[in-house]
Design a protein around this nucleic acid. Structure first.
Lengths: 246, 246
DNA sequence: CTCGTTCTAATGTCAGGACATTGAGCCGCA
DNA sequence: TGCGGCTCAATGTCCTGACATTAGAACGAG
């Protein structure tokens, strides 16, 4: 591996070559092998160094440019962008985010029912009249401190669930195990004042600030899978994201 | 143009072929020629119909998949996703968003100075000690109603600006005219309670909810260009976005 | 009639080449 | 000395071809 990046490619791996390159360059950037602002060798040379074709190398670099780690300039070259880049907001659940950060969230199921959907839910999930959905509210705590109050509606023809499952793991984990491949979600983030119902549950003063989030998630077959209204304590939670110009 | 999409491509146009295809399919989806959930012809046929090679066709479809308009399933085919998809949160300014929606925002510059940056600003913009920045606060109204209170710090070695310019147009428009090509921005969205300074300016009650946003924007050379703290009236503004699973 | 196997069609990956376009620096000419 | 044109190197676009992998349908045997 006599190359600039100090990485080698395993052609027997089931991981696609271009993806190995993506991971390799990401690692090189985070390890400091590639410093922010430094120029990479040109595509042709890099491909030759790794015994890859230029399209493969280019596809890898495309992904990195899209994710904002690299910047290409025609006629000039490719540079590492000034780092400090966090990962873009991903399609995941709060539960996953917390466990990935080493936290140990607990979930308390406040209500749970399997019922016929009302008109608003039918519209949000684009379901035919008379469809049944799961409807539940959960309170999530971290370190014993309340963080989020979540109300969700989930179509019932994908996975079965009950209170015990929701108390033990995240909603998205349950759905994924039921075979759902999430593709996209539209969400809206805003703010509100804690009302008399929310405040005691979140152990906050009535009148304190809450972050609100409404989300509807779509799977790879185009089905609307779940929709929910969440509120978070503003002093404990905020949404961080990285926007990339296309 | 004997093809499924009812589009034809212009090989003499300076617009890349794959991009013409992207625009064509987007138009077909929005016009209803391609209905949500319908299957597209396979890549090979589509390419043949348009007299394109498969990689070119594929590159176009890649973009549409990334933006969430199409869904590919290996061994099966490609489908139009269930629409209802808004555009993902883009890297733009509030001013642009409002004017694009037909609104006529007005800006009132509350303070403006060109001064040496404090420690926090130096860190946020990664500037050397002693650098000077523009610092200003603006109040933005729509239809005479206050919407946002914005405080920004901008490095001064890119574009020159003054109060009059800021009152007349958006910050990003000024910077773009100065040659800045924005690449990415990291931002954090949260909530807070209006304090005694903010409430009268926004014509809101002290104690009402505000949406907060902190953003730092980076240009294509990796420079941190601007950073800002914004607050919005929660009853008038929220952040809408579409997340795409990678 | 049911279940497992095979087959097929579609996307996923990869190679190698050709030419266009752009930016920047070099060089010569006025 | 200044300025314009030229050259070169890099990315941008597009092509042809090949094989791998997968999901689903068709088919066969029990």
């Amino acid at each position: 591996m006599a190359n600039q990046l100090g990485l080698s490619i395993d052609r027997s791996s089931p991981v696609p070559l271009y993806h190995q390159v993506v991971q390799g360059i990401e690692a090189a950037i985070h390890n400091g092998v590639l410093e922010p602002g430094s120029r990479l060798d040109n595509e042709i040379d890099l491909a030759a160094q790794l015994n890859l074709s230029r399209p493969t190398m280019r596809k890898a670099m495309d992904e990195l440019v899209r994710s904002g780690l690299l910047v290409r300039k025609r006629g000039v070259g490719t540079q590492v962008v000034s780092s400090q880049v966090r990962r873009p907001l991903e399609l995941s659940s709060l539960f996953d985010d917390l466990t990935n950060n080493g936290k140990k969230p607990t979930t308390q199921v406040l209500s749970f029912s399997h019922m016929e959907a009302d008109a608003a839910t039918l519209a949000a999930l684009q379901l035919p009249a008379g469809s049944k959905v799961y409807h539940f509210t959960r309170l999530r705590k971290v370190g014993g401190k309340p963080l989020a109050l979540m109300e969700n509606w989930v179509r019932d023809d994908i996975a079965t669930m009950d209170e015990a499952m929701l108390a033990a793991e995240g909603l998205y984990a349950i759905l994924r195990r039921g075979g759902v491949n999430f593709r996209l979600a539209s969400q809206r983030i805003g703010a509100m004042i804690a009302n008399d119902y929310q405040a005691p549950l979140l152990e906050a003063e009535p009148g304190s600030a809450l972050v609100t989030m409404e989300r509807t998630a779509v799977d790879d077959t185009g089905r609307m899978v779940e929709t929910g209204h969440h509120v978070y304590r503003a002093d404990s939670y905020s949404f961080e994201m990285t926007l990339v110009q296309r």
